[in-house]
Design a protein around this nucleic acid. Structure first.
Lengths: 158, 158
DNA sequence: TATTGTTATACTCTATAACTATA
DNA sequence: TATAGTTATAGAGTATAACAATA
């Protein structure tokens, strides 16, 4: 009773499509000197200046040692600065540099581009319908917009 | 003019949701003794008995050395048999064992389960609508149902 | 003692390149 | 020479555990 492209294949196709979308995003941010993981961290720091590495780790759902590497990369790229917090010298305040803010702007452009590329085959009405459904699913499954998930981000998948 | 959950976030949410779906699938096939990569290879071999490793590599979009590891795992699990092709002794014929066929049955069940879990928040009509849209996008973007994509499957993303 | 951040180490996944055997 | 498969090796990504500085 189900067609070959019917709803029973949706989960599978969604996996594939999600991976495709993520790959396209990675491609678009690469020229900006960013990996998807760096982009995710940058987005959080843009909204929460002065965050500690520990707090960033919690937001990302990552371990502190992972954040060291991530912040190392962002600092080396000149997008983020580490400053010892004078109040509690154990903390590092993380802030976007001017270059980091500029990168954020280009990052938003890349996200728009990815979205446009992905949805190009659909008309406005269909995009709206898909957006609503996808958003409903994301909310229902408790998907946190801060965590830029990769396959490897799921401990239970190993 | 766009709502906060509007279409401009769809690409991002689709990445997240796809990753979520893939993680759920990995979780479901783990008790079967399969990784997602093994499951993908098993599905191809179920439809194409006697395939050579080279042909499997082409279907998977993987390099031959990767397929060695994959087939090693499937053989060790008792799901696939390697037989030297008497016609051309350079080739290995790959075939599902009885246990492999049994695993395929359970694999189909896992895929149905994943789909049901993922789409649980939607009613029948919404599922159908989502299925149609997702299927349209997959076709338009040339997504090959044989290739079980992971982030790492995209050379251009590095 | 507890917490923040770092380093050392190891493990998984996958690719490239060199190699073996067959043709 | 060319092809199928294998092995050796290396790199990326990320986790765990030990550690240093600070509280």
């Amino acid at each position: 009773m189900n067609s070959p492209g019917g709803p029973e294949r949706t989960g599978f196709l969604l996996s594939q499509l999600g991976s495709f979308a993520a790959a396209r995003f990675a491609e678009l941010v690469k020229p900006l000197g960013l990996t998807p993981a760096m982009a995710g961290a940058l987005r959080i720091l843009a909204r929460s200046p002065g965050l500690s590495q520990r707090a960033l780790a919690d937001r990302l759902g990552a371990v502190p040692s992972r954040v060291v590497v991530l912040v190392d990369a962002l600092e080396a790229a000149g997008f983020v600065s580490r400053t010892r917090d004078p109040e509690d010298r154990r903390h590092h305040r993380l802030d976007l540099t001017d270059a980091g803010r500029a990168a954020m702007g280009r990052l938003r452009g890349a996200a728009e581009q990815q979205n446009a590329d992905l949805l190009a085959p659909l008309d406005a009405e269909e995009r709206a319908a898909l957006g609503t459904l996808v958003s409903r699913l994301a909310v229902a499954h408790g998907i946190d917009p801060d965590v830029h998930r990769g396959f490897a981000d799921h401990p239970e998948s190993r």
